[in-house]
Design a protein around this nucleic acid. Structure first.
Length: 117
DNA sequence: TGGCTGACTTTCG
DNA sequence: ACGAAAGCCAGCC
């Protein structure tokens, strides 16, 4: 739960996992958006680094996390470079040349979707 | 134990 | 407008 993020002093990784898990089907977000949501936008790299552990965390759709341009930069860390793209396409997200088409449309902004008050 | 590296983003020159 | 550098923090030699 998101509310527990601010309540509990969970590890940075756990917070990232929690947010990533909330990404709806057919949507995607960026490392920076998650980092910013967690209040450490400058640590966007850590979000990506956190995904290293996300692979062993079931239920964490790491393929729905891309860089701010919609490029599947993390695809190289999947079982195969095209694994990430195929997963996204399987969710109806069109991917061309390692980049999400109309990323702004499929972009899932935690600040908006989670409606922070 | 200490230092390097990294699935990024932003800002300064 | 483009290129380079910094900042973030935890895991892994």
């Amino acid at each position: 739960m998101i509310q527990t993020l601010s309540e509990k002093h969970a590890d940075f990784f756990d917070q990232v996992y929690a947010v990533v898990r909330l990404i709806p089907f057919g949507r995607a977000t960026s490392y920076g958006a998650i980092a910013s949501y967690l209040g450490v936008k400058r640590s966007a790299r850590m979000v990506g680094w956190a995904m290293h552990g996300a692979a062993k965390h079931a239920g964490v759709p790491a393929h729905r996390v891309v860089n701010r341009n919609g490029y599947l930069t993390g695809s190289i860390h999947f079982e195969s470079p095209n694994q990430m793209a195929e997963l996204l396409e399987g969710e109806g997200v069109q991917v061309v040349d390692g980049r999400i088409v109309d990323f702004k449309k499929v972009f899932w902004d935690p600040f908006v979707e989670l409606a922070i008050d």
